[in-house]
Simulated assay, not measured.
Amino acid sequence: MRISVPVQDAQPFTKVSPKHRRQLVSTLLVHIRGALARGPHSVAELLVGLSPQEAGALAHVVQIMIDAGETVTMGHGVYTAVPWTPTNRRVETDPVQDLVLSAIALIRPPTAERIALWLALPRRTVSTALNTAEAYGIIIYNSKNTHYRFASAEIAKLYRGGAAGRVFADVSPKPLD
């Protein structure tokens, strides 16, 4: 495999306008996701067919995908897609949010008051977590009976089923001892 190096200099990724930067990131996300959907690829393979400007942004976009948990290195410059997390932002966690959502799956009837009592959390904390989940469309509030439910059967199944039967990849940056 050979890559031709252009004679002209490309403007560094950090120096391009924010609008152009967003376009580059969007283009590369599509390029990388398409390649990784076909199987693991080395960085050299990902560079093939890219303009100098896109090549200069490749490392930045791959890092976004690694930080998001969407892509993981297999070593020796080879990357693969992590099949269970299609996202392009850093994966963040909120244990309180996770507990509240899990409580909806376990408590009958799932009301804010019962969840707060069961988790021994302040009602305000539980309400904030419930409002956030509702805003994201994960849960739905029924004002008639003050119960919460998951927005879809698939989401409910994930929370009720736990981690059993799911596929996870080790995305730890360091080897585990």
Rank of each mutant, 00 (worst) to 15 (best):
S127R: 13
Q8T: 10
A135D: 13
R149T: 12
T128F: 09
A156H: 04
P173Y: 07
A57L: 02
S143Y: 14
F168Y: 07
Q23Y: 08
R123D: 06
L117W: 11
G69T: 09
D177E: 11
L24G: 01
V126K: 03
V25I: 10
K157Y: 07
N145Y: 05
V43C: 02
S4V: 06
G75E: 03
D94Y: 09
P95E: 15
A112P: 01
L176H: 12
Q63E: 14
N142Q: 08
R123M: 14
T27D: 00
Q63V: 13
V100P: 00
A156D: 11
L130N: 01
E70G: 10
D177M: 07
A112V: 11
A57T: 02
H41Y: 15
H20A: 03
E134L: 09
P95T: 07
K174M: 06
P18L: 00
L24T: 01
Y148M: 06
G56P: 01
R22T: 11
V167A: 10
W118N: 02
G161H: 05
I139C: 11
G49H: 11
Q97F: 07
G56S: 01
V7D: 05
N131S: 15
L99W: 02
Y159M: 13
L101A: 05
A112D: 05
Q23L: 12
V25E: 04
A57R: 01
P52I: 14
K174Q: 09
G39K: 14
A105N: 03
G69K: 09
P52T: 13
F13C: 01
